[in-house]
Each structure stands twice: as C-alpha cells, then as structure tokens.
Design a protein around this nucleic acid. Structure first.
Length: 279
DNA sequence: AGCCAGGTGACCG
DNA sequence: CGGTCACATGGC
C-alpha cells in the first residue's frame, strides 16, 4: 500500500515526541523504515521518497485504521503554507522544518497513561518505561505480513488497573506508579470515560482529565491533543516554555491559530528541539 | 558527576 | 492566584 502526500514524513513523526512506540528499524538505499504498534496491530512504514510512504498492511487495514491514525484526510499543506507565507518568522521556519509532521489519533487510554509517565522524564526514558509496561501487561501477538514479527500491544485498562504498585515501580515508573494505577482504575470502572471526552469540548475534556490525580494542565493538553484529537490542545512543556519566553517574550497568542493551535505547537516543539541540539 | 527531562501535588503567603 | 519544593529515575 503506497501513499503519496507532501506532508507525511515518518522520521519527523517518530521524532516529534507525540508517540512513544514508533521506532527506527533500518535505512536501506536511503529509504528509512520505522515500525509501530497501535490499535493492537504492528505496522511497518518505509519512506520511499519525501512525498511517498509505503505501508506494510493491506488496503483494507489502511483505510480501516491507519488513514485515520495518521490524520491523512486533513490538509496539513494548507496549514504549513499559511505559516510559511505568514507574518511570524519563527513559525515560518518551524513549519518549513517540520512540514512532514502530523498529529496522530492515538488510542485514548494509551495516550493517557503514556503522558502521565512522560512527566519529568526525557523521551528515551519514556519509551523504555512504556515498552516495559507493554511487555509486562500487554498482549503478545505475531505479525505475519512483516515476517512473523512478535510484538506486544499496549495493555488495556482492565489489566493495568489490576497491577500491583510495587510491580509498576519495578518498571521504572518512579513516583508515577500510583498515578498510573489510579488512572487505569478510573478508566476500568468507567469513572473516567475517555471516549465520551472525544465528543465533548476541549475545555470540558481538560477539566475532566485534570480531576485525575497525576494529570495536570500539560498532560491534560497532551491527552486531549494526541489521544482525543482536540486540535486546540496546546501542551506547554519545558521546550514550549523556552519558545514562549525566548522567542516571544511571553507575548505569544495561540488564539491567532484557532482551530489548529495544536499543530502550531507541534511545529514549535519539533523546531526548538532541533535548534537546541544543533547549537 | 551532575544536571536535566514533553510536570504535578502539597504547601505556603 | 502565584512561587517554591520534593518527588524517582534514567539519559547524556
């Protein structure tokens, strides 16, 4: 299954800090390959050229799951061009630099737990921690399309909600162990209905999420943006704080980008990390 | 070796 | 409300 899209770069997506189970596999003949587990499936993606991505799955599976997952019906080119031709010099560069990023539609529960774990950790540590949790509590599966690859799914709330705190702690969750446990139990009992939060407003979703112990403003924005696809989400972490302070002198107005501020935030994050690592 | 990481809750005034 | 502090642990 081959897809052409001018705003679809799998390396940029994998490196954009919004998902933690998309991993580099190889680079053969300048064609980069990544593997990913989501929605109980394993998928491999190959960037054939800047505008072309090959999916390892069938056409049915692509239209059933991945077209939606990668938000491929939405026109990111329009957003990118608007920023490139706009008045904001930083966003001009940022959009140009990260034009292949897309905001993924991840599973809400996975996004919730992943971003609870993310607090005060760097991205490699988050990935390792999540992988450990999947291995311990996820379901073992086998993928035949990609040569019988064994993989583990992200655990369900039912399974994770029955975990023992000490076991979670042993998986490098640190002080977040009880945050994870409480959140999983809240989903399990129905006290926290993530599917329902997709339907209601962004503001309502954030407010509800913040009612869970261990979910604050930033994590609630991440879950809303990456797990519920509330595109107005605007997570402010240490990197975005740097942007807002150093580039905008704390005068940035996200309301100028109403309806897609989450995408703007993602370009900012990706570009700022690049600037800092290059300096 | 020591600082930092896609922060949050508790506690303070 | 807004400022400080501890929190557990790996990455670099």
């Amino acid at each position: 299954m081959i897809i052409h899209n001018q705003n679809f770069d799998i390396m940029q997506i994998a490196d954009s800090g919004q998902c933690f189970r998309m991993n580099y596999i190889e680079n053969k003949d300048k064609k980069v390959k990544y593997g990913l587990v989501a929605y109980g499936r394993y998928l491999e993606l190959t960037q054939l050229d800047p505008d072309t991505v090959e999916f390892s799955c069938s056409e049915e599976e692509f239209y059933q799951i991945w077209e939606e997952y990668f938000d491929l019906k939405y026109d990111y080119g329009k957003i990118v061009n608007g920023l490139i031709n706009g008045e904001d010099p930083f966003l001009k560069e940022a959009a140009l630099y990260g034009k292949g990023i897309r905001i993924l539609k991840q599973e809400p529960f996975e996004a919730a737990i992943s971003f609870i774990i993310s607090q005060n950790k760097n991205i490699p540590a988050i990935k390792n921690c999540i992988e450990g949790i999947c291995r311990r509590y996820g379901e073992q599966k086998e993928n035949k399309e990609c040569g019988r690859i064994d993989y583990v799914t992200f655990p369900t709330a039912e399974v994770l909600g029955q975990a023992v705190k000490e076991d979670l702690r042993a998986l490098k969750t640190g002080y977040r162990d009880e945050y994870i446990l409480k959140a999983a139990q809240a989903v399990k009992t129905g006290e926290l209905d993530l599917e329902n939060l997709k339907q209601c407003s962004f503001e309502e979703a954030v407010k509800t999420l913040k009612g869970i112990h261990g979910i604050g403003e930033k994590v609630a924005n991440c879950i809303s943006l990456y797990g519920l696809h509330h595109i107005e989400g605007f997570p402010v972490d240490v990197w975005i704080q740097k942007v807002l302070k150093e580039i905008y002198n704390n005068q940035f107005d996200k309301d100028k980008y109403k309806g897609y501020s989450g995408i703007v935030q993602q370009y900012m994050f990706y570009y700022m990390r690049h600037l800092k690592s290059a300096s």
